[in-house]
């Protein structure tokens, strides 16, 4: 190979000076490159994606079967548990995926690969965050698509085009905020053991303290309060609504919280606020570690 190509003689020290591209073009170039790296890893080691698709399907089938014989109409008029559960599994899966976003960054820290990124003249080190978020968002949408398809196959029905757009939007909103928190943890915690422990204690409790598996009306009052304050519920309920109702608008009531009715638009607003809060919370941490 090297014998067939004769490289042109290069002046080695002259390159840095001729960098004329704009900072935005630089940011795009570095972000695309780091995202590409994550996708190459995924392509060569697809196990995590395969497991990430199988796991929610198992939830859907096994957990759905668990409550198959509850009296009809308990989860709403004409609704079986499978139809009820779909939205919960989509959100839980997106949440779990985004929560793990910090792990690759943590391993890069531990193996010194992050230093390679930090000595490079990145236009902004937030490209490291952007690359992780892009990667996780793509992955999560793939998983969500699999769940939606499996749900349709199992008889949960399929929301219309506008409904699917709602699912995508909500998943992306949730992933953005949770990814930011996970990356913040990846820089704040000392190592991957601590990060995995943090993921472990967050993941399932937040699932059980949300409306993913059962409606608020099933819960004791104290849990009802927790679930009604849990951001996951604000992602689950609008998706559930578009699954169970033909028509919806921003005023449709998606959740009867202890403190009042929550409308469709309000739920979306809560998610946006969650993202803003997460980014604001994590930003000084990323700044300090990456400045």
């Amino acid at each position: 190979m090297s014998s067939s190509v004769t490289p042109p003689p290069v002046q080695f020290a002259a390159i840095a000076a001729e960098d004329t591209a704009s900072p935005i073009a630089d940011f795009v170039q570095e972000t695309v490159a780091m995202t590409r790296r994550l996708f190459i890893q995924l392509q060569r080691r697809p196990t995590t994606l395969v497991a990430g698709i199988i796991q929610p399907l198992m939830w859907l089938i096994l957990f759905g079967a668990l409550f198959q014989n509850v009296p009809p109409d308990l989860f709403g008029a004409g609704t079986n548990y499978g139809q009820f559960l779909g939205a919960g599994i989509i959100v839980f899966t997106a949440f779990g995926g985004a929560l793990n976003a910090g792990l690759p960054v943590m391993f890069d820290r531990e193996f010194g690969f992050l230093n390679r990124l930090l000595v490079a003249p990145l236009a902004s080190r937030f490209s490291i965050v952007a690359a992780s978020a892009l990667f996780i968002a793509t992955l999560t949408l793939l998983q969500a698509a699999a769940i939606v398809a499996a749900g349709a196959f199992l008889g949960s029905g399929l929301p219309g085009v506008a409904g699917l757009a709602v699912v995508v939007t909500i998943v992306l909103l949730l992933v953005l905020g949770v990814t930011a928190i996970s990356l913040g943890l990846a820089f704040a915690l000392p190592g991957h053991v601590e990060l995995i422990a943090a993921i472990f204690v967050t993941n399932l409790p937040l699932l059980f303290a949300s409306t993913a598996l059962a409606p608020l009306s099933f819960m004791p009052v104290w849990l009802r309060w927790i679930a009604a304050l849990n951001p996951l519920s604000y992602a689950i309920e609008p998706i559930r609504y578009v699954y169970l109702h033909e028509g919806w608008n921003l005023g449709s009531v998606v959740m009867e919280a202890p403190f009042g009715s929550v409308g469709f638009g309000a739920a979306i607003a809560v998610l946006v606020a969650f993202d803003v809060a997460a980014l604001l919370l994590v930003q000084p941490l990323l700044r300090r570690r990456m400045a």
Binding site: D26, R36, A120, P121
Partner: peptide, 8 residues
Amino acid sequence: QLQADLYH
């Protein structure tokens, strides 16, 4: 290639 992109 990654390195080349990191240095734009």
